[in-house]
Structures are given as structure tokens and as C-alpha cells.
């Protein structure tokens, strides 16, 4: 298929990126592992591509004062290394191994995945689980959104066409936090049918914090709030895990496709992820 005509700009600075985006007609080319495919298949027909790969400021990954700051060119692969310490690093490492495969992870970026907002993508749910702050830069300056505010639907976010997702901040998880990830996919070359991402904090034998996120269960990243509430305050025992998984499966996230099979998968995945998290506490 012949690709629609488009212009290409290799930006050299953040200001240049924003200048090219200003008319709302450009798409941001970071890792390109989804965008190039969309362009070559004509699923997307941007008037212009602004390539940010030569903007050195966008490669920064910074972990200070309990906050991980991720810039737009930090590739998935970076999260495989032990560059990020603590339970947050453990969670990101366990998730990233399930994103694409090595050639995709060498190019694709965390912020690109967030901005693309694929309902079966792992990072958007991780952002919701971790309480991420997402910074958008545009002609009127910067604004900060939570994951709940940022994701508005499948492939749809609150980012305006003239804005760039310029930084994501992930708060460190407290000591005593165990992380877990479990997924169901038909083959490693497919997107996940469903996955659970959990982070559970235990102090003095009782659960003091719990975040349970579900991938590809609703149009936006889903938090199983009722299941989280069921865990908090009690011991992190088998019975609590089984009960939290049961509650998670009752979630009313996508009532068009909530079959018994899917609810069974959610229950099983939540249980596996929580069991994994308990081992890491």
C-alpha cells in the first residue's frame, strides 16, 4: 500500500518539537513501533511527523527524592536493567519483559506507549497502579494530569494535538511492597487478552496499601478498587488473596464483553499476581 504523503521534521530541541506540533497537524515519532505501522498501513495519515529521536534532553531517566522521572525517549529496554532500585524497579522489570520482544523494546518508549493508549498495553495500567503524574507541554505551558485524567478511551487520551507528553513521574513504592504481574495471551506474538498488575505494601503483618490494575479489561486502564479495599487492613494470606481476586472479577468495567470466561480470567490473573507480590514483600 502506498503511504499517504507527509512531511518529516527531525527536531533538535524540545522547543522545536512544540513549534512543529503547534498547528495540531503533526504526530510525534518516538520509538515508532506503533506509529510507523499505522502510517504504512494508512491507519494514520498525519500531515507531518516530528521525529524526537535526536532531542538529547528527552533521554533522561532520573531517580531522586523518591520519584522516578521518565523523559520521552526512555526506551522500554531501559526498564529491564537494574537501573531503577527498590520495589518500583522490581515491578517495572517484571512488566517490561512482557512488552513486545527485544527489537521492539530497543526502539519503543514508555511515554510513546502511554500516549498511544492501547487498551492491551501494560504501561498505561502500570501508570494507573503507581499513581503516575503525566506532564503535557503545549503552547500554553505545562499541565499535569493523573492517569485517570489522562486516559479517556481506547487509543484516546486528554493530550491535545499540539501537546507533547514530556515527562512522567512515578513515585517510589514504600519498603515492604511486593509487586506482581500475571497475564494471559494466546501466543507471545499477540497482545494480552488480560493481565493484572499489582503492588501490595505490608507493615507489621497487615496490608497498608494495595493497588490492583487490570489490562485489557476496559476501554481505559482499570483499577480494581473494591478488591484493593478488601485487602487493606488485613493479613496478606491465602484467604485474603482468594477473596480479593473474587471481588476483582466482579468489576463492572466493560459490560459489553464481561463474559463468565473473562471474569474467570480476571480472577485467576489477579490471584496469580497477588501471590507473586506476596513472595516479594
Amino acid at each position: 500500500m502506498k503511504v499517504a504523503a507527509m512531511d518529516y521534521v527531525a527536531a533538535r530541541s524540545p522547543d522545536e518539537v512544540l513549534a512543529v506540533l503547534a498547528d495540531g497537524q503533526a504526530s510525534v515519532l518516538a520509538g515508532g513501533q506503533s506509529l510507523v505501522l499505522e502510517v504504512t498501513s494508512r491507519a494514520a495519515q498525519p500531515r507531518r511527523l516530528v521525529d524526537i529521536n535526536r532531542v538529547a534532553e528527552f533521554e533522561v531517566l532520573d531517580q531522586t527524592d523518591g520519584m522516578l522521572r521518565v523523559a520521552p525517549l526512555v526506551r522500554h529496554r531501559v526498564f529491564e536493567s537494574d537501573a531503577i532500585d527498590g520495589p518500583l524497579g522490581d515491578l517495572l522489570r517484571v512488566i517490561v519483559r512482557h512488552i513486545g520482544h527485544p527489537p521492539i523494546r530497543a526502539r519503543g518508549t514508555m511515554l510513546g506507549s502511554l500516549a498511544y493508549a492501547h487498551p492491551a498495553a501494560e504501561w498505561p495500567v502500570a501508570a494507573a497502579v503507581l499513581g503516575a503524574e503525566l506532564d503535557l507541554a503545549g503552547p500554553d505551558g505545562r499541565r499535569t494530569l493523573t492517569a485517570e485524567q489522562f486516559f479517556t478511551g481506547p487509543f484516546t487520551t486528554a493530550r491535545r494535538p499540539e501537546e507533547l507528553l514530556v515527562e512522567v513521574r512515578l513515585p517510589a513504592l514504600p519498603a515492604g511492597t511486593g509487586a506482581g504481574y500475571a497475564e494471559h495471551r494466546r501466543s507471545h506474538a499477540k497482545f494480552v487478552e488480560g493481565a493484572a498488575i499489582v503492588a501490595v505494601t505490608v507493615a507489621d503483618g497487615l496490608v497498608t496499601g494495595a493497588a490492583i490494575g487490570l489490562v485489557n479489561v476496559g476501554p481505559c486502564p482499570v483499577r480494581a478498587r473494591a478488591a484493593e479495599a478488601a485487602l487493606i487492613g488485613g493479613p496478606f494470606c491465602d484467604a485474603a488473596i482468594i477473596e480479593a481476586a473474587r471481588v476483582a472479577a466482579e468489576i463492572d468495567a466493560d459490560n459489553r464483553a464481561m463474559t463468565a470466561t473473562r471474569r474467570g480470567a480476571i480472577r485467576m490473573l489477579t490471584r496469580r499476581a497477588l501471590t507473586q507480590a506476596r513472595e516479594g514483600v
Binding site: Y8, A10, L29, G32, Q33, V36, L37, T40, L49, D51, N53, P102, P103, I104, A106, R107
Partner: peptide
């Protein structure tokens, strides 16, 4: 289509020549 770009194995169908 896997080739090395700047030392990394990547899908050359998912990169543009201009990049």
C-alpha cells in the same frame, strides 16, 4: 527484516529511512 541500527537489532520495516 531485522538489521542493526546503531548496534541495536530492530525491525527495519518499522523505521523510516529518513530517521
Amino acid at each position: 527484516c531485522t538489521v542493526l541500527v546503531d548496534g541495536d537489532a530492530v525491525r527495519s520495516c518499522l523505521m523510516l529511512a529518513v530517521q
